[in-house]
Design a protein around this nucleic acid. Sequence first.
DNA 1: CCGTTTGGTCAGATTTGTTGACATATTATT
DNA 2: AATAATATGTCAACAAATCTGACCAAACGG
Lengths: 184, 184
Amino acid sequence: MPETPDAKPVGAGRQLLFLREEELRLAQDLLFFGYRDFTAGPDALLAELGMGRAHHRVLHFVGRRPGITVGDLLAILGITKQSLGRVLTPLVEEGYVVQTPGRNDRRQRLLSLTEAGQALERRLFERQKEWVMRAYREAGPVSVEGFRRVMRGLMGEDARTQLDRALPETRPVPPGGAGSRKVA
Amino acid sequence: MPETPDAKPVGAGRQLLFLREEELRLAQDLLFFGYRDFTAGPDALLAELGMGRAHHRVLHFVGRRPGITVGDLLAILGITKQSLGRVLTPLVEEGYVVQTPGRNDRRQRLLSLTEAGQALERRLFERQKEWVMRAYREAGPVSVEGFRRVMRGLMGEDARTQLDRALPETRPVPPGGAGSRKVA
DNA sequence: CCGTTTGGTCAGATTTGTTGACATATTATT
DNA sequence: AATAATATGTCAACAAATCTGACCAAACGG
């Protein structure tokens, strides 16, 4: 918390206020341009397949949490089930995503990627990976850590909770193999 | 540049690769959630006025570069003039933006915000300002600098150029006051 | 058995983007 | 002066991704 410039010389206060405002407008610019160009690579690839960004998001989050329920996916994406349906149904029909009934609760349709789904998600990921790695390399590890902290701060409470649940604790690679599939 | 782990023990290499991939997937998550929540505040306000995010972008960039030409705005936004038209025309009709013919080239319609436009843009900005300031405060100045560097790295060449042209060099406040209104 | 939850679906609307074709005014070139 | 190029606007049709509202079916749970 820097000074609240009320008793300060007026010129300096003005300058500080100006800088703060300019700083924040710059943040707006950076987020607009950065996010747009961050998504440009996958967008191009998706367009060739007759898909859009919404499909990518589903592939991404299903890939991230295999066996996720429709309800949880809806909560993460923050959209209605009708909107999700129009993207998810084609993905299932075209063999990118499978739905298996939950064995505790058979109303649930647990979602996971097929081989084709994993392959497609990977192709999309690779594009973004190259792009992000370039930015990370140019900026250096300290900046990357700062980037992560600020981005996390830009998230609302709900999103933070979801992110933490999605990534329990940078789970280390299970040395034995694919053995630790508990809970659900 | 960190090590390029080619001659390293295999286990460590695996681990590094895993972390790198997980790191990058985390970046995807952060950008998705962060950008969404970053825009949520203005979106809500805009909805009340029957406008959308596209209107905000026009108000933002016109406010940032008063007197900008339609062509330059199109280049910044990266959309077609038809798309811009459907957002810009209402903004002009409702008195948020004015078009004044360029005095060098009278084909141009130089865009700037009216008083009402400035007021609206400010209301939108204030919401985002609070949000970003919270994130900035929580993260601290070093992280903010890192955030800026990474975001800039995520931008493509064109966007970087435009950003630099938009903000010639953190122009200092003209000490005389509001006297530098030339051009139009 | 009955109410709730989980998920799906149909229908219609909105916002924001796209192409393509043309029109108008103004500037630049020949 | 005639012609070409540029800056902008506009009409029409279309697509992607969201929304709301209504309704249905299967399965769970008391």
